[in-house]
Design a binder for these strands. Structure first.
Lengths: 327, 327
DNA sequence: TTGCTGTTTGAAATCGGTTTCATGAACATA
DNA sequence: TATGTTCATGAAACCGATTTCAAACAGCAA
């Protein structure tokens, strides 16, 4: 691999001049600039990003820390993050934690020692606060947990999401509506629960719920619990689209028909929700916008050089499809 | 952030000694080692990985280059790669190319300039060969394309996959079997096609096929084409589990019942295949093993310091579920 | 021609680690 | 006691860029 000094020698200039031509950081005579460009082309010089990072104290990397990349919602957000980062000359480090606190801590430490420029994180672990506190990076959380230190949060309106989904089921004629409630350490789960409860109260309906995690497997467990406790549920608010998939499967096994016997509203609005059969009525989050904005906030903080707290909340939309039926 | 020199000063030793204690690269007297460890704890010293990488010419990073992380199969493999990499102290850079040759080239260049230790790639782009050629990194391809330069390939037995899936449909009584054929620049697609054709020929059946890409959307287009050309298909070999999902949806819309009117066999064996309704009969690839092995091969080449060609082929298994029915 | 200003330019310092290499201490051997 | 050997240790070189700073140079006025 050619070094900057090779280019400099070939062009008959100093490496400082080569650096200036590459980065446009100072004026270089047209004559020398031409020679440098020629030498770069001839040697196929590709500046060593590590050396650059060492001096600049920035590696143009953003860490994306998630419990599991198998969570389709998080992977769709990851897709948007990667795209926006790439557009801006940044790379994304994928950090899958399996909800393992040690892995989370290790990744945060690692990102900081790699001069990463920021962290985008979804994690419900209180132990993390300490780690996040000690690292000076801009941190954008996608799930504001109560006391955590972070520079910004990007979310969608979970209260509204819980509320409109519930109201929709009520309009569909459901009276016995059960919420699969997400882990309550996430503020989004709390908000959604509140929206649900408020909608119920406004219509004189008794709020009912079971606890559930977000992924396929946890969703299935949550659904089993739900059927045991509320075998006569008429409408179900799933914790996620993936959980809705598991839920539907269980209903199907029981010979119950959707939406005629039971109605389902999913959450997230992942691509899959539209493609599954039956197509899932769901509360869609603006996934693309969330991912892009998260990156945007990191870059903003990097440019400004200072960390200032921001909270972004996007609106959600209800997608009416085949797992609910309005009368 | 504390530097190694701060630790050295506090412990009353040189930074060389601190480095030796951290890395265990040479003997240090127990007395000094103790002082160093104490100083590290007191300062909260976290070695700068970038500085280390610069000298060592290794950043302990592996690039994972894929057309789209939204492809569940690739994201499940990515999960295994991330896990295995982390176990070995490596990080994974997520490189989503959207099949965009420029993005692919940019990522390869970037990984090489970052002193990455290897690349794991799924890409069908011939233009890439040039880029891959010029970078000295170990490269593991997950889809050996004909002439590309790579150090190793990890795949599963696509010929066998195509064959057993076809034989299964034949055993189920299908005579009119259509293959959704994947892009033929992938050797895996070619092999699967061959397995399909051979199975057909052995049973005196006319091979039929349409072209299709792997993801939801491309799968839906492929499925539409299939129904136009072969409205009376009895059995369909989907190009992927995700395509099978789209396919099922279309059949459902047409009021055709699965498996009674038409049977479907998916491909890949992603988690979703088991959870969708009806559960998908599919040819399962050993996803976990493929991901782990790919990382293993990279690490092997890094240790040996030399690149030697290897080709790994894992066996596939047929998962019998609800979209086919043996008579 | 001299003196002044303003711009190009390269030598050297810098980023923060790791490793080499020379030194000196400790110990064994003659 | 003199000599050889082993081993822990720190100063300095190194990785490959970027940036600082002072010198060289060009342009212009007097």
């Amino acid at each position: 691999m050619a070094h900057i000094s090779d280019v400099a020698r070939l062009a008959g200039v100093s490496s400082a001049t080569v650096s200036r031509v590459i980065n446009g950081t100072a004026k270089v005579s047209e004559e020398k600039a031409r020679r440098v460009r020629k030498a770069i082309a001839e040697t196929g010089f590709n500046p060593n990003e590590i050396a650059r990072s060492l001096y600049k104290k920035s590696s143009r990397m953003i860490g994306y820390i998630v419990p599991s990349i198998l969570n389709i919602f998080l992977s769709e957000i990851g897709r948007a993050i990667e795209d926006e980062a790439f557009r801006n000359g940044y790379k994304v480090i994928l950090c899958n934690t399996d909800q393992n606190p040690e892995k989370e801590a290790a990744y945060i430490k690692m990102l900081s020692s790699m001069n990463a420029d920021g962290i985008i994180i979804t994690a419900n672990n209180e132990h993390l606060d300490e780690e996040l506190e000690s690292c000076r990076l801009p941190i954008v959380v996608l799930d504001k947990s109560a006391g955590a230190r972070y520079s910004a949060s990007v979310q969608s309106d979970s209260y509204e999401g819980g509320k409109i989904a519930t109201e929709h089921l009520i309009r569909c004629g459901c009276r016995k509506i059960v919420l699969m409630r997400g882990p309550q350490q996430y503020s989004s789960s709390q908000q959604r629960f509140l929206g649900y409860v408020d909608a119920c109260n406004e219509h004189g309906i008794q709020p009912l719920f079971v606890e559930s995690g977000f992924d396929y497997r946890e969703g299935r467990d949550g659904a089993r619990e739900l059927f045991r406790r509320f075998p006569d549920a008429e409408g179900i608010l799933a914790v996620s689209d993936m959980a809705a998939l598991s839920l539907y499967r269980l209903l199907h096994e029981q010979g119950r028909s959707v939406p005629d016997d039971v109605m389902i509203v999913g959450y997230d609005g992942v691509e899959l929700s539209e493609l599954m059969t039956p197509a899932l009525t769901t509360v869609a989050q603006p996934i693309e916008a969330i991912g892009r904005r998260a990156v945007g906030l990191i870059l903003e903080q990097v440019e400004k050089g200072k960390i200032e707290q921001r909270e972004i909340i996007f609106p959600v939309t209800l997608k009416l499809r085949e797992t609910t039926k309005q009368i």
